[in-house]
Computed example of a mutant assay.
Amino acid sequence: MLEQFKKQNKRVRHYKWWQISCVIALVIIVIGGVSIGSSVFYIIKEGPRIESVLLGPSIKYLSNKEENSYVALEAIPENLKDAFIAIEDERFYEHNGIDLKAIVRAMAVNLQTGSYSQGGSTITQQVIKNCVLTPDKNIRRKIQEQYLALQLEKIYDKDKILEYYLNTIALGQGTVGVQQAAKYYFDKEVSQLSLAESVVLASITQAPSRYNPISDSEANWERVQVVLQKMTEQDLITEEEKQVALSENPYKVK
Rank of each mutant, 00 (worst) to 15 (best):
M1C: 07
L2I: 12
E3H: 13
N9Y: 13
K10H: 10
W17S: 09
Q19E: 06
S21L: 11
C22D: 05
I24A: 12
I28K: 03
I29D: 01
I31M: 14
S35C: 08
I36G: 00
V40K: 02
I44P: 05
E46C: 05
R49P: 00
I50H: 06
S52L: 13
V53Y: 14
G56N: 14
Y61I: 14
L62Y: 05
S63D: 05
E67C: 05
E67M: 12
E67F: 12
Y70P: 05
V71H: 00
V71G: 01
L73C: 09
N79Q: 15
E88R: 14
D89K: 10
D89V: 09
R91E: 13
I98Y: 13
V104M: 13
R105I: 12
R105V: 12
A106W: 01
L111G: 11
Y116W: 08
S117C: 01
S117K: 11
G119R: 07
G120C: 08
G120I: 04
T122P: 09
V127W: 03
V127G: 04
N130T: 04
N130R: 07
N130V: 04
C131S: 15
C131K: 02
V132F: 03
V132W: 00
P135Q: 03
D136R: 06
E145K: 07
E145N: 08
Q146N: 08
A149W: 04
L152Q: 09
K160I: 08
E163M: 10
E163S: 12
Y164A: 14
L171T: 00
Q173G: 00
Q173Y: 03
G174L: 02
G174I: 02
G174W: 03
G174R: 07
G174Y: 03
V176A: 01
V176Y: 12
V176L: 05
V178N: 04
Y184K: 07
D187T: 06
L193S: 02
V199N: 00
S203G: 14
A207K: 13
P208R: 04
S215K: 14
S215D: 10
V226A: 09
V227G: 07
V227T: 12
Q229R: 15
E233Y: 06
E233S: 15
L236R: 15
I237R: 08
T238Q: 08
K242T: 06
K242D: 02
V244Q: 07
L246D: 01
S247C: 07
Y251W: 07
V253T: 11
K254H: 08
